[in-house]
Simulated assay, not measured.
Amino acid sequence: MSTSPRPDPLATFDSLDPTAYAFTRCTWVDAPPARVYHLVGDVSSISRWSPNATDAAYDRDAGPRVGAWFSGHNRKDGREWTTRSQVVRADPAAAFGFVVGGTENGIVQWDWTFRSQGRGTIVRQSWKLLRLDPVLGTTRADLDDLRRYMTDSVEVTLASMAQYFAGDCGTHEMAPGTPG
């Protein structure tokens, strides 16, 4: 009887592949893609849904466009920190994405896509580790725990977003002339 070797939970950076740390989750929300994109692209909205992101704001004179920068404040396990992120995709009503750390030195990429289905939208949220960095953990077990934690966080975020739109809580958030 042959058994495959179990991954070493203490394996360090030298033997880890960052591409193994990625996932996508999705949900249906009761709103058109343009409306969902508008709220996701307004990064200050994320704290309404995310259990970890407590505040986010674009730099002065920036907004949801490729190349724009924003700062985000996060909380996890009693720790708090601020990140700098750069928008890498801003396709109104279709997709929004950013890289924590920016395109040249990023460690994590977040992507959102929006596809019309019936009267609502299928929202896909993806998380992908771009490179290894000790701030995220130094062993396979650390990174496995991080991926599990982030997966749970995304699932909570998407469920909260679906509930938010189901209750039509975002109606007053639309800027004049914004479709949706």
Rank of each mutant, 00 (worst) to 15 (best):
G106E: 02
W127Q: 08
S126P: 06
R140L: 07
R115E: 14
G120P: 12
D144G: 06
E155A: 06
G120E: 11
D145N: 12
L129V: 04
Q117G: 07
E155M: 07
E155F: 02
T157G: 10
S153D: 12
N105V: 08
L143M: 02
R131N: 05
K128W: 00
F114Q: 02
D142F: 12
Q125S: 07
D144V: 11
E104D: 13
E155H: 03
K128L: 06
K128E: 06
D133I: 00
G106P: 01
V108L: 13
Y149R: 08
M150G: 01
I122L: 15
T138W: 04
D111K: 10
T139Q: 03
D144I: 01
T121D: 10
N105D: 15
S116Y: 07
W110P: 04
R119W: 14
R140W: 02
A141G: 08
V156K: 05
R147T: 14
E104F: 03
V108M: 07
V123T: 09
D145K: 12
G120S: 12
N105C: 08
Q109L: 11
S116E: 13
V108K: 03
W127D: 00
I122E: 15
R147W: 09
S116H: 09
Y149E: 13
L158E: 05
R124A: 14
D152F: 03
D145P: 01
D152H: 04
R115Q: 15
D111Y: 06
W110T: 02
L146N: 08
Q117V: 13
Y149P: 02
T157F: 14
D145G: 11
A141S: 13
T139P: 00
V123P: 00
T139Y: 02
G118W: 12
P134T: 13
T138E: 13
D142L: 08
R119S: 15
L143G: 02
Q117N: 11
D145Y: 11
A141D: 12
R131P: 05
D142P: 12
G137V: 08
V154Q: 07
I107M: 10
Q109N: 09
R131V: 04
I122T: 15
L143I: 06
R115D: 15
L143E: 01
T113Q: 03
S116K: 12
R140D: 01
V123A: 09
E155T: 05
P134N: 07
G106C: 01
R124C: 15
T151E: 06
T121S: 09
K128H: 06
F114Y: 00
S126Y: 03
T113S: 14
V135Q: 10
L130I: 00
S116A: 14
T121C: 11
G118L: 11
K128T: 01
T151H: 04
F114H: 05
V154I: 10
V135P: 01
F114I: 02
Y149I: 05
R131H: 04
D144T: 08
V108S: 00
D142N: 13
T157L: 15
Q109G: 06
V154K: 00
L129R: 05
T121Y: 10
I122S: 10
L129T: 01
N105E: 09
E155K: 03
R124M: 12
L143A: 04
L129F: 07
T113F: 01
D142T: 07
G106V: 00
V154P: 00
R148K: 05
G118R: 12
